[in-house]
Amino acid sequence: MSRRADAAVLLLAAVAVAGCGEAADGDPVLPQDAAAAAQVELVDVPGLGPVLADGDGFVLYMFPPDARARVTCTGPCAGSWPPLAVADGVTPVAGDGIDPELLSTLPDPNTGGHVVTYGGYPLYRYASDVDPGTAYGQALLLNGAPWYVLDAAGQPLTTDPEATP
């Protein structure tokens, strides 16, 4: 009986290790697709002014732990804060008021593609922003740090919209 238990443990360990290899191609728990195109534009949000948004007008956020160099929001975090992801070789498009020199990409551990960055910050949407031009995630403390919108210069706005007249 002990040999069967040992064999079962070894089999489960082998399956777990084999499953880990899939993470390089995307998060197997939270599959997301990398888009064939992405545009970054400005939208005016009451209490905040013009902030970055995707091509559909949904506000984009930055996450300070990314430290302008990496994507740290993966797995369940990316379920609440899906990254603005594009497929390999896709160049994001700058809309009116967006500096194309500030647009770039970083490898995305969620999709296997790339996350669009602005001023070095990876860009994310907030799942509770169900309508374009809303910013319910602004200054929201989730996943260990606050989330902020960015202005056209690529600077995080640390203003809490509730405190703004």
Rank of each mutant, 00 (worst) to 15 (best):
L140P: 00
W81Q: 10
P76A: 14
A139L: 08
T74W: 00
G47Q: 04
Y121K: 00
V93I: 14
P109L: 08
A53G: 08
P132I: 14
G112F: 08
L123S: 02
A152W: 14
A139C: 12
P46W: 04
D99C: 10
L52D: 01
D151L: 08
Q32L: 04
P107M: 09
D129M: 06
H114A: 13
W81D: 05
G75W: 04
A139H: 13
M62K: 07
V149L: 02
P83L: 10
A152I: 14
A152S: 15
C77A: 15
Y126K: 02
Y126Q: 02
T117Y: 02
L103V: 00
A34Q: 12
A36I: 06
R68I: 03
L103W: 04
A38N: 01
L142Q: 15
G26H: 08
D27H: 13
P122E: 09
P28C: 11
I98P: 03
D33A: 10
T72E: 15
E41Q: 15
W147C: 02
P146N: 12
G119W: 07
G49R: 08
L142D: 15
G120W: 06
V93P: 01
L142R: 13
Y121T: 01
L52Q: 00
V115D: 05
P132G: 14
A94R: 03
L84C: 09
L123T: 04
Q138R: 05
V116A: 01
D99A: 13
P92L: 07
A152G: 11
P100S: 01
D44V: 08
A35Q: 12
P107F: 10
G95C: 06
G137C: 04
E41P: 01
N143F: 12
V93L: 14
L140V: 08
D33F: 01
L103M: 05
D108N: 06
L42P: 12
A23K: 12
Y148F: 15
P107H: 08
V115E: 11
Y136F: 11
P122D: 09
A38M: 10
L84G: 08
S104Q: 03
G75E: 09
D27G: 07
L48Y: 07
Q138V: 09
W81Y: 04
A53S: 13
T117F: 05
Y136M: 06
Y124S: 06
P107Q: 10
P28R: 11
A152C: 11
P132C: 09
W147N: 05
I98N: 02
V59M: 09
F63T: 02
D88Y: 07
D99M: 11
V115N: 04
E101M: 07
L84W: 08
D108P: 05
Y118K: 03
T105K: 13
Q138S: 04
G120Q: 01
Q39I: 07
G95F: 11
T111G: 11
V115H: 00
N110C: 03
G49I: 05
S80R: 06
A85G: 10
P31D: 10
D27T: 07
L30W: 14
V43P: 02
C20L: 15
D56C: 00
P83T: 08
L123D: 02
R68W: 03
T72S: 13
A53Q: 04
P109R: 08
